[in-house]
């Protein structure tokens, strides 16, 4: 389908600086892709901005929740006076303004109520602000139908993104130094050296991704797990506690219940760790002091990485990060790790 899409001169002017980076073919594929974005908090806003600017075909904003005071920390798509209104609907206008050439729609229903075949309308599903149970369900549906699946969230200073692209084929530029003998032959030695240049070859590659459940149910208590653990970012386990909190209370930790949520997180931590084969004090409960609301710069970083991974996935250009990216705003680390296989 992507092959039939032509880029107009107007689009070429608008997308000039990125076509110079990823080429016309990648832009054509972007232009054909239909994306579902679940969750329109800070991270969702960043992802929406990045992929709409890049020039996808259509974006559906799906969120049944309403704007709160906390959105002022990072959700730049909703007007300040819209507290109490639906997040997807409130975001629609500004998302559309980012790029009139993209078809943008808002859906205010609850993703949990959507039947399986709803997801078949999309090439990419990106789920934020979802519980682990929901993420597992959507991942399985996407895997069964070859839909590219992404998940991500930001809690205060911490954030992550996950990708399950199934069996994914992509093109990668490989650079080789090559002396241009035929032209450089007659050049004096001093000039000849300068004629050596990097040559870019496009290489076709593929990668197979694992399901989200394999990562979250991975047993770190085994010998193999313990070996891997040494090099696994702590942020992964912080995220697990936070997702467990959402599972248990059917909501995120919130600043309006700051103290009790902090305590609940601290209490939840040992159990979450033990369940996946870790010592109950493997991570310090200190993180509970810095995981409230969504920091705008953290959303920008995680949303930037996540947005670029979506662009890579649909344009089938460049090696995707497999399969997690973690950002920890307290220690400043930004790591890619392969967990679950």
């Amino acid at each position: 389908m992507a092959e039939q899409i032509t880029i107009t001169e107007d689009e070429a002017a608008l997308y000039d600086r990125q076509i110079r980076l990823w080429g016309l073919d990648a832009q054509r594929r972007l232009r054909a892709s239909r994306v579902l974005l679940i969750g329109l908090r800070g991270l969702g806003a960043e992802v929406a901005k990045n992929i709409v600017l890049a020039g996808i075909k259509s974006l559906t904003l799906l969120d049944h929740t309403v704007v709160t005071e906390e959105d002022a920390c990072s959700q730049f798509l909703v007007p300040r006076q819209d507290v109490g209104k639906n997040r997807a609907e409130s975001s629609l206008h500004r998302v559309q303004q980012l790029n009139p050439m993209v078809d943008v729609q808002a859906d205010i229903s609850n993703v949990g109520d959507k039947p399986d075949d709803y997801f078949l309308n999309f090439d990419v599903v990106c789920a934020t602000c979802c519980t682990l149970t929901l993420l597992h369900r959507i991942d399985e549906i996407c895997a069964a139908h070859k839909i590219k699946f992404f998940a991500g969230d930001v809690f205060g200073f911490y954030g992550y993104m996950f990708a399950d692209l199934g069996f994914h084929e992509y093109a990668e530029d490989v650079q080789k130094t090559k002396a241009k003998e035929n032209i450089g032959e007659g050049e004096p030695a001093t000039k000849k050296a300068k004629i050596e240049e990097l040559e870019t070859h496009v290489v076709k590659k593929s990668a197979t991704f694992t399901r989200l459940s394999n990562a979250f149910e991975f047993d770190w208590g085994t010998t193999e797990g313990a070996k891997k653990l040494k090099r696994t970012p702590n942020t992964f386990f912080i995220i697990q506690v936070l997702l467990q909190f959402m599972e248990k209370f059917s909501r995120r930790p919130e600043v309006k219940t700051l103290l009790e949520d902090r305590q609940a997180l601290e209490e939840l931590t040992p159990g979450v760790l033990e369940k996946i084969g870790l010592k109950s004090d493997y991570i310090s409960p200190e993180f509970a002091r810095s995981c409230f609301a969504e920091l705008s710069p953290v959303c920008a970083i995680v949303g930037g990485v996540l947005g670029q991974e979506i662009i890579k996935a649909v344009s089938q250009k460049d090696r995707p990060h497999r399969n997690f990216f973690f950002f920890n705003g307290i220690d400043g680390s930004g790591l890619v790790d392969q967990i679950g296989d």
Binding site: R17, Q18, R20, L21, E46, K49, N50, L53, A54, S296, P297, V298, C299, A300, I301, G303, G304, V305, G307, Q308, I311, G329, G332
Partner: peptide, 19 residues
């Protein structure tokens, strides 16, 4: 001398500046 530029890289760098 056009330097290609994309939204995502700028977003990440601007986030890091604030951090």
């Amino acid at each position: 001398n056009i330097i290609p530029a994309i939204a995502t890289t700028n977003a990440i760098i601007a986030g890091l500046i604030v951090m």
